[in-house]
Design a protein around this nucleic acid. Structure first.
Length: 725
DNA sequence: ACGGGTGGCTTTTTT
DNA sequence: AGCCACCCGT
């Protein structure tokens, strides 16, 4: 069997990984070290040299994009269709398992996936039903806590029940949420994973079926796995132990949403006979960029240890620009891009990266001024848009009359005279008789509990849905989407409105018809589901692209998080200021600073040829000017790799990066009295704490301190004495 | 039932 | 500053 096309393009470490004996393997793949290549070639190796059938391979990723890319690259490598392979996201694959085993998983066949927006609405409804004041029990927080527990595989029944009223209330909300979801056949994102885990845990035949089925399990971005995903992988690989995990502890940036780097750090002890292979040769960045990134990440403790190297030349120095404010920062970035483009480079070879999305505004203004096409990543994606969700709700109600979230969403949209009071009656009835809103509505009308006017409005809605259902029966997806838009009145509703916003909505709705037309259901090893249900499930699991229209060749603007996995010849890493990056919210919580540093590392390692680092002395945030201090991360980069560029209008001495080994930032202004974020201080009244944020100058300086006992406080050092510890 | 004024909040994001 | 949710007036 000829395997040269699989083996030859690899370096030694990559080849070792790809051809590793069948045993648990962890590939520590540094940024730009060819991680996807190793994954795809590993699968190719297993199939071509290992005699493994494609059906015996399971490959898991986090995003649909990564899954698609892997599929594409395997097909390219093997010149074979990959349809028999289970390649997908954790959620996509688990959803497929749940569909196949819905009964064993305790779900109705028509179970419906709800996104976090639907989940939020549901949590609010439950708080309302339990008579809990939203002011005391913020729905966002309750939703967050429910998800937190679910991600740790904890059911409400496993919650610690104490005397604590707070805990008791959380228990009531979580338990009621669980009960409601179960009754309505609703499954949130975490539930998809948790259900599958429980199915495997509690159902031996099902567990063994899949344990035997998959001889090899491969996982991408292993550092991002959460507790459920990890436990599920453990069960799935329990008898053969052939887990092939690829990840990088230095690129773990999702700890805040439940990812556990520990899963990667303890791999060696968790999986018996595990081999660890390091990919340390970087093929992406020039020498200076890589060296600087290495210097930053070295400051973190508890790493598995890894130092990237490159055969590439040193390249240009990293350029550091200290701007006077965020407008200056944006102007500098845009004019630099203009020269770059004039030199003959493409615009899409450039990325502007920032810590928080709000920063994009200043850049967008300058790009617009310069007439430079750009694309902003982030924000609502296609299937998350309100008007799209409205149309989908009609489609879902047609497909399943019992879908309460859909009923609630569109019962009065476009407005048809069904008010809050009428709905409250329907809700009461549905709650009392434990039936769906749809059934409750029909009964309430039949029992003549409503005013004539309300009853007729509600009756017309029910007729409308039946009418659309009749007209779309057995029709193509495209035609269903089209008829829903026409008959529901949604399209007319927005067409009447001449505002720019409404016009965009009309375009989006029309785009939905195209999406329905283009939809190709995946394989159906499992499936006797109709295309409509598959389309709706797909819409929930894959929210689609961020922006409807894409420019061919434009500058890319995105948050650091969205940039992970991407690379650009020219990168601007902007807003390197204490409080913004690292973000102050991260400074307040233990362990988060290191995650911010990894984020910085991720950002720097996106750059191939040229990296710019920028900060602004004054940044307008939430409507007011803030005097900033350069990010500590800048001081962690040895000067040897940096070339400083001064703004002509800069008002105070630029921050100086230090040589390796030297103490970080010497304090420059008397204003802050030697205080800087991170400084430990003692206050006569509040005790010990850490400086989090400094604002203002001279006697007006105010310092935010996180006291270990008193919590966050603003202090005026000019009046209150602070001792530096 | 709907629209306008007011008050609170404001990291990162996938599924 | 801007966005969103809520309240109140019509």
């Amino acid at each position: 069997m000829d395997v040269s096309h699989i083996i030859d393009p690899l370096n030694d470490a990559q080849r070792m990984a790809v051809t590793a004996q069948a045993a648990p393997a962890l590939v520590l793949a540094g940024a730009g070290s060819g991680k996807t290549r190793v994954l795809t070639h590993r699968i190719g190796w297993l199939v071509v040299a290992g005699g493994c059938s494609p059906q015996e391979v399971l490959a898991v990723t986090f995003t649909n994009k990564a899954a698609r890319e892997m599929r594409g690259r395997i097909e390219e490598l093997l010149q074979l269709p990959t349809s028999g392979m289970w390649i997908g996201t954790f959620h996509g694959l688990c959803h497929r398992l749940l569909r196949m085993h819905f009964e064993d998983a305790g779900l109705p066949q028509t179970f419906e996936i709800i996104d976090s927006d639907d989940q939020y609405r549901l949590v609010r409804r439950i708080l309302n039903e339990l008579d809990l004041d939203e002011a005391y029990w913020p729905p966002r927080q309750m939703q967050w806590m429910i998800n937190q527990h679910k991600e740790e595989a904890r059911r409400a029944s496993q919650l610690p029940t104490g005397e604590d009223y707070q805990q008791q209330t959380l228990y009531r909300v979580y338990a009621s949420y669980e009960e409601t979801c179960q009754r309505l056949g609703l499954v949130d994102f975490a539930e998809i994973l948790l259900r599958t885990l429980e199915l495997f845990r509690n159902n031996q035949p099902v567990r063994e079926l899949w344990q035997k089925r998959f001889k090899h399990v491969l996982v991408d971005e292993f550092q991002d796995t959460n507790t459920i995903q990890y436990q599920w992988l453990r069960i799935l690989t329990a008898d053969n132990k052939f887990l092939f995990a690829v990840g990088d502890d230095d690129q773990s940036i999702y700890g805040w949403r439940g990812a556990k780097v520990e899963n990667l750090l303890t791999f060696e002890t968790d999986f018996e006979g595990a081999q660890i292979i390091r990919l340390e040769q970087n093929y992406r960045s020039s020498g200076h960029i890589l060296a600087a990134a290495n210097a930053v990440i070295e400051k973190n403790d508890g790493r598995m240890g890894k130092e990237l190297w490159t055969e590439a030349a040193d390249g240009n120095l990293i350029r550091l620009y200290g701007a006077s404010n965020e407008i200056d920062e944006a102007q500098y970035v845009v004019s630099t891009i203009e020269s770059w483009v004039q030199e003959g480079h493409r615009r899409d070879s450039v990325a502007i990266l920032y810590r928080s999305n709000a920063q994009s505004r200043a850049f967008e203004e300058q790009l617009l001024n310069a007439g430079m096409p750009y694309r902003v990543y982030g924000g609502l994606r296609f299937f998350e848009r309100a008007e799209i969700k409205d149309a989908l709700a009609y489609m879902r109600l047609i497909s399943n009359r019992e879908s309460d979230p859909s009923f609630e969403r569109i019962v009065n949209l476009p407005p048809r005279g069904i008010g809050a009071k009428t709905l409250e009656q329907v809700r009461d009835h549905s709650r009392a008789k434990q039936i769906s809103m749809w059934q409750a509505a029909t009964e309430v009308i039949a029992e003549e509990q409503l005013s004539a006017r309300a009853a007729s409005a509600l009756g017309r809605f029910i007729e409308l849905i039946e009418e659309i259902a009749g007209a779309t029966d057995d029709q193509s997806l495209e035609s269903i989407a089209d008829k829903v838009l026409q008959m529901s009145g949604l399209l007319d509703h927005y067409k009447k409105d001449k505002s720019e916003k409404a016009q965009g909505r009309v375009e989006n709705l029309e785009e939905l018809v195209t999406a329905a037309n283009n939809f190709v259901p995946g394989e159906t090893e499992d499936g006797d589901l109709d295309p409509l249900s598959l389309f709706l499930a797909n819409a929930a699991l894959e929210a689609g692209e961020g922006q409807a229209a894409e420019w061919e060749d434009c500058v890319q603007l995105m948050s650091l998080h969205s940039a992970k996995g991407l690379e650009f010849p020219l990168v601007f890493l902007c807003g390197l200021e204490e409080g913004l990056f690292p973000h102050q919210r991260s400074l307040e919580e233990a362990g988060r600073l290191e995650e911010e540093r990894r984020l910085c590392y991720v950002g720097m390692t996106r750059a191939m040829e040229q990296l710019y680092l920028c900060y602004a002395e004054i940044r307008r945030l939430y409507g007011k000017d803030n005097y900033t201090q350069a990010s500590r991360f800048l001081s962690e980069i040895p000067m040897d790799y940096i070339e400083e560029i001064r703004s002509s209008s800069i008002s105070r001495p630029l921050h100086r990066p230090v040589r390796p080994g030297a103490q970080s930032m010497t304090n420059n202004s008397s204003a802050s009295n030697g205080l800087q974020p991170g400084t430990q201080v003692n206050h006569t009244k509040f005790g010990e704490g850490m400086v989090v944020m400094i604002e203002g100058q001279g006697d007006n300086t105010r310092v935010q301190i996180n006291f270990s006992d008193a919590g966050l406080k603003w202090i005026l050092p000019a009046y209150a004495k602070l001792d530096i510890l």
